[in-house]
Design a protein around this nucleic acid. Structure first.
Length: 275
DNA sequence: TCGCCATGTCCAC
DNA sequence: TGGACCTGGCGAT
């Protein structure tokens, strides 16, 4: 269930489990047999994410590029007594060491690529709020010159990398922004507040293992993080996402839904009216 | 048991 | 802009 926070959490798990190891790489399903052969026997150096893209660097300038798409999963599991679990279902890629197994299923993309390809891919992506020192101005430059709606712009990975449909809906609601307002009509201060907010929310998503946007849950998660405590996932609740026809939590008006940029947008027609 | 939907993206028309 | 692709969960039947 991947927006950017999922990929960053995954990169961290892979990095912790595999960096510096030489995993056996296989493709039980067979669809990635050639790629697996290329990577098998190489040392894994580092796993990282940019937006919704996962990159795993192996020695010899070989990179694994994975995009989970809508339904992909990459499970990393510690092994008990080096007992290797049998392959279940369609496993595109398996990384195996004496202590960990990681199974990739249903990805949109799984390929062995060159450093140049990695560079080309990341250079097409907008700033990622979860990477160190993301450049908010690059995103603002695109938004402030665009006649496309802010709801479309937020889904464009070349504008901001890592935001998906849930963060889009929730972020717009948190700032009471009309989703249909053109980018060029968004006030700089509004964008700055949204950007700062998404930069604060996404790390909570990593820590909790799920998207956290409800004010009470945000507060709890931030307190836990500040205290160095683990963040409990808690009940999955959203402000507007997938709440069509339900009352707005603030004003009681019905939550609307409409397909925008190919995905179901949810918003409150009263709280997010154009101002 | 079936069909639909989903936190995504690409490509053909 | 609509369809294809990949898999799992859930409500309807």
């Amino acid at each position: 269930m991947p927006e950017g926070h999922t990929l960053h959490a995954l990169a961290r798990r892979l990095d912790a489990a595999y960096a510096g190891t030489t995993p056996q790489v296989s493709s039980p399903q067979g669809k990635f047999a050639q790629g697996a052969e290329l990577l098998d026997g190489r040392r894994l150096l580092e796993a990282s994410a940019w937006g919704k893209h996962l990159f795993v660097e192996f020695d010899g300038d070989a990179w694994l590029h994975v995009h989970l798409g809508l339904i992909g999963k990459f499970d990393v599991t510690p092994l008990a007594d080096s007992v290797v679990p049998p392959v279940q279902g369609q496993v595109r890629l398996r990384l195996l060491t004496p202590v960990h197994v990681a199974d990739l299923r249903g990805p949109n993309l799984c390929a062995v690529v060159t450093p140049e390809h990695v560079q080309a891919t990341t250079s097409r992506l907008g700033p990622d709020p979860l990477r160190p020192d993301p450049d908010a101005d690059t995103a603002w430059h695109k938004i402030s010159r665009s006649s496309r709606s802010i709801a479309e712009l937020l889904m464009d990975q070349a504008v901001v990398a890592g935001i998906g449909n849930v963060y889009r809906c929730e972020l717009l609601y948190r700032h009471r922004v009309d989703p249909f307002r053109p980018g060029r009509e968004i006030r700089p201060a509004t964008w700055r507040a949204m950007w700062d907010d998404i930069c604060a929310l996404m790390p909570l998503g990593i820590a909790a293992g799920q998207i956290v946007t409800m004010p009470d849950q945000v507060e709890e998660a931030q307190a836990a993080l500040a205290a160095g405590q683990p963040v409990e996932p808690g009940e999955r609740r959203y402000l507007v996402y997938r709440r069509a026809q339900e009352p707005c939590r603030v004003c009681g008006a019905r939550v609307h839904t409409q397909v925008v940029a190919g995905r179901n947008l949810f918003w409150c027609g009263r709280c997010q009216r154009r101002r």
